[in-house]
């Protein structure tokens, strides 16, 4: 914090600088012989590999993106809805949050072979696994957020004559947006992880499949090319969530800064 202030850099600029240094190190370390290029090929080789095989990468990227999109909708949608119910119904709150917190500790990847057996090795099993993987933290984030809504805000609305519907639309919903977004952030990120991991285990297409199949033939530049594609998905997702937060929940961040 203090060094950053001393250098006169904003957090965003610092973030970019760190990213740039990592990319430079990625390029330099194998070229200077610090790491064998079988373990870490230079960044430029990975980029070149993606460029050379762009059709294959694009097809597999599309498969992964489709699975991620469906998983995110399932994980975040049901997570936010369940979390909202758990967070607002007092008798459910304690038992359900502790249940889901315990479930969260289970390495759910042990269930993937089962899902592959039930649903096949196509997109269905990936979507089922990734949705399950993302839904629990989304439930927890949404429940915690709904609970943190100040009940006085709704009472005040009632004193102003708001009907139940008006209280939901004009008070509870806007107050819930920050927690909904944090549920999306966490559930969405894990849905990406879930899809890629599942593809790496058993599949016939997708970026995870590319990583595994190039790894078995020791084609490091292509492995890292696929990794770059996964990183791109994560970065774009993060940027979209940030943008949504700025658009709809700037007030919440501003309160947090105080």
């Amino acid at each position: 914090m203090s060094t950053e202030a001393a250098a006169g850099l904003s957090p965003a600029a610092t973030r970019r600088l760190i990213l740039l240094l990592i990319l430079l190190a990625w390029e330099a370390a194998p070229r200077l012989g610090w790491v064998p290029s079988l373990f870490l090929p230079p960044l430029s080789q990975a980029v070149a590999a993606v460029h050379a095989d762009r059709m294959a990468y694009a097809q597999n990227l599309a498969v992964t993106l489709g699975e991620v999109a469906v998983s995110m909708v399932l994980a975040c949608g049901s997570g936010i809805a369940l979390g909202a119910v758990i967070g607002s119904v007092r008798v459910l709150r304690k038992p359900m949050t502790s249940l889901f917190s315990s479930l969260y500790a289970i390495p759910l990847v042990i269930l993937y072979p089962l899902m592959a057996a039930w649903l096949g090795i196509g997109p269905e099993s990936k979507i089922a696994f990734a949705s399950l993987y993302g839904v629990i933290p989304a439930i927890l984030a949404s429940a915690a957020g709904i609970q943190s809504i100040d009940p006085h805000l709704a009472v005040t609305a009632r004193s102003m004559g708001a009907t139940l519907r008006q209280r939901l639309v004009h008070v509870i919903l806007p107050a819930a947006i920050p927690s909904v977004l944090s549920a999306v952030r966490i559930g969405g990120a894990l849905a990406i992880v879930g899809v890629v991991v599942a593809e790496m285990l058993t599949s016939t297409a997708g970026l995870g499949f590319l990583i595994t199949s190039y790894r078995t033939v020791l084609d490091s530049p292509r492995v890292f090319g696929a990794i770059l594609c996964v990183l791109a998905i994560v970065l774009i997702f993060d940027a979209v969530v940030r943008w949504l937060e700025r658009r709809t929940a700037g007030w919440s961040a501003a309160i947090g800064r105080k």
């Binding site: 006085h152 005040t156 004193s159 806007p174 947006i177 007030w251």
Partner: peptide
């Protein structure tokens, strides 16, 4: 009320 209870958004 005792708290202003304004809508922060």
């Amino acid at each position: 009320f005792q708290e202003a209870n304004l809508y922060p958004w």
